[in-house]
Design a protein around this nucleic acid. Sequence first.
DNA 1: ACGCCGCTTGACAACGTTGTCAAGACAAGA
DNA 2: TCTTGTCTTGACAACGTTGTCAAGCGGCGT
Lengths: 332, 332
Amino acid sequence: MRDVAEHAGVSFKTVSRVVNREAGVRPELFVRVEDAIGQLGYRPDHRASQLRRSDSAAVTIGFVLVDVANPFFGSILRGIEEVAASRNCLVFAGSTEGSEERENQLIEAFVGRRVDGLIVVPSGAGVGVIKSEIDRGTPVVFLDIEPELDGVDLVRSDHFQGAQIATEHLLAQGHTDIAYFGDDPDIASAGLRLRGFFDAMSEAGLTPASHRVVTGSHTESEWKAIVLQTLQASKLPTAIFSAQNYVTIGAAQALHELSLQERVAQIGFDDVELADVIEPGLSVVPQHPRNLGRRAAEVLFSRLDGDTGPAHREIISNPITERGSGEIEPQP
Amino acid sequence: MRDVAEHAGVSFKTVSRVVNREAGVRPELFVRVEDAIGQLGYRPDHRASQLRRSDSAAVTIGFVLVDVANPFFGSILRGIEEVAASRNCLVFAGSTEGSEERENQLIEAFVGRRVDGLIVVPSGAGVGVIKSEIDRGTPVVFLDIEPELDGVDLVRSDHFQGAQIATEHLLAQGHTDIAYFGDDPDIASAGLRLRGFFDAMSEAGLTPASHRVVTGSHTESEWKAIVLQTLQASKLPTAIFSAQNYVTIGAAQALHELSLQERVAQIGFDDVELADVIEPGLSVVPQHPRNLGRRAAEVLFSRLDGDTGPAHREIISNPITERGSGEIEPQP
DNA sequence: ACGCCGCTTGACAACGTTGTCAAGACAAGA
DNA sequence: TCTTGTCTTGACAACGTTGTCAAGCGGCGT
């Protein structure tokens, strides 16, 4: 900026005025400064300007998620971006892979860059660094997973009810021997889905055998192997509830490998690509992740705009998308 | 920081020393400062520290992509993150949706935040803002799409050869009437794939009829409609080459809707989820996007580490993953 | 001719941090 | 005791920008 000022023969304050389109600069000077900026390829240092500015609207938000490569989170990020872009705001994103340590690192890195707000898919209970940030007044919206904290903003799917209606849907076809595959129930959302499953089962007077409930955190291909192994190890269940998108894919792969896709019903939580093309089509409880992202961002920006109302708790439920696999009747 | 210094009864320079773990602070003072930091919940302002620091390793990079919701780009971003995280570096990411204007906005926003380097999937020809940034000395690695610029670093799949081998694979089964569906050939990568297709066809002495080549930028569901319409409008082609992941999904949906999946061969560029579960399995030329991201990041960091060698051009090709759909013989 | 006003411009402090350097304390050696 | 050296600490400038304020200029009314 100093260079530009010299080049245009003005003080750097005047350059600042031109850059910020402030009124009260003689057109002649304005042009001279713009020319100098163009010639020198000068770009204002946004960090320095933020450093001095007091007010100013939100310019950066951080998004802590589990894994951007998972289209569920990728779509959420896209939704957040969409809202942020409309307000000229940039997004930092980082994957935790479910590690609380990495989550803390990311949050500290984001806060160190003075993000205006955070959207977080918590890996832990929300008692780590994020808690102290909330206490310091940083606006935070939790997404997808509920932390063990009161009075915080939250946007998520109704994991419990989704699992319930999925299970009830299978029960309604007459299934009683249903296998559950899902993420580690220590993850709050996965825990809720598991409880939704148990709840629906016990409503029907059923208690799932322990070998019918398989949980853990694995990749797609690991899930395929796990489901394969489980299906081969004992009497076939008549239906499967796969409680996460990668689990759904792994389970579908396993069923097809064993040519059981017409014999064993399957219903998944969260939609997946090509679910309508496989035979039978995969029935799922969808989540509309892009909308989840949009909503979370909207809530965050309303806080940044000064909304100090009570905690916003938005729990979204969606009806089942029936495509065939979830409508298979129990086979003897 | 001023507060911490007062609270601990030291100068803020000493606080700075403690925060940066500099040697030569009496243990007693060190503890006192750390306590004050803890009590006040102080977080160093990373922007201010960067402002003053001269040297310092790379701390932030920017990634300009087309759409994070597309798992192809999501996986690339994951690969970049992976490398960046290992160097304690944060990633800004932004989706352009193919708009050159948005690309320029993003690059300006990133540069304004003084990112140390950029990875860019260019939407335009690379002559916009990105060109002037390169000239100013910002390290830039292009990814997936080649800009119309010489001497720049680039990591991408071999779009031309991939399309060639896909087409040759279909030709080898005896197909001569092959339909091409793909992105707008104005996008450099899509243009290369289309040329790879034409090249393989003409090598075989064939010239595709103009109604056999359908291009444009559309969503998954639009592609399904377009392929449906095309298949119904005229004599069936005996094979389809779908040159992008969303196109592949749309085309597969269309074929299945018309129950033609056993009659019309299909081969796709870029792998998709569940491709091995649908019947017949979808044959594709895969891309391993996470690895593309990792490689681009590695190249960028080597530049940031001072590598001033000649432009790095890495063009990766992968063999076809045969799953069935691409091995269907021509049906009369 | 004088005072007042509005417009344009620049000097200077401030934002939160680090780099530089000098000052003070204390111990060792002459 | 005096010098020298080492260790710890703080004062101050600097990074690139914006906020504040006052100075300079010309026009207008009296």
